[in-house]
Design a protein around this nucleic acid. Structure first.
Length: 97
DNA sequence: CGGTTGACCAAGT
DNA sequence: GACTTGGCCAACC
């Protein structure tokens, strides 16, 4: 299923790194950026899949089922600096498949 | 099967 | 930098 693939890719993102919806879609060989967002929104494997490491292509956090605040805290806990809802040194932390 | 809904993207104003 | 537009795609009415 589409969602399963998305979640599976999320699991591959190491701590301290982030990825984008676009990259996930690209890894799936399609342009379903939006569908990816939907899939993560419905993510039932909340702790298992680190979906908080997925952000928009411009480095902003975007949404999060448990609230952006929580998302930011989790990211900063992993060494990622977030400023004004956007990731600092984003290109540096970006993880590509 | 058509219409709506998003945790989207890029380009333009 | 904030907002609008058109395009994009899976999932769900």
């Amino acid at each position: 299923m589409f969602n399963e693939s998305v979640w599976n890719l999320c699991k591959q993102i190491p701590a301290g790194r982030v990825s984008t919806y676009k990259e996930l879609a690209h890894a799936l060989h399609c342009k379903a950026y939006r569908a990816v967002g939907n899939a993560l929104n419905k993510n039932p494997y909340s702790p298992i899949v680190p979906c908080h490491r997925v952000v928009k292509s411009d480095g902003s956090l975007s949404g999060f089922a448990q609230g952006q605040k929580k998302k930011q805290r989790m990211l900063e806990k992993e060494g990622i600096i977030v400023e004004k809802g956007k990731i600092k040194l984003f290109y540096n932390k970006l993880y590509k498949f």
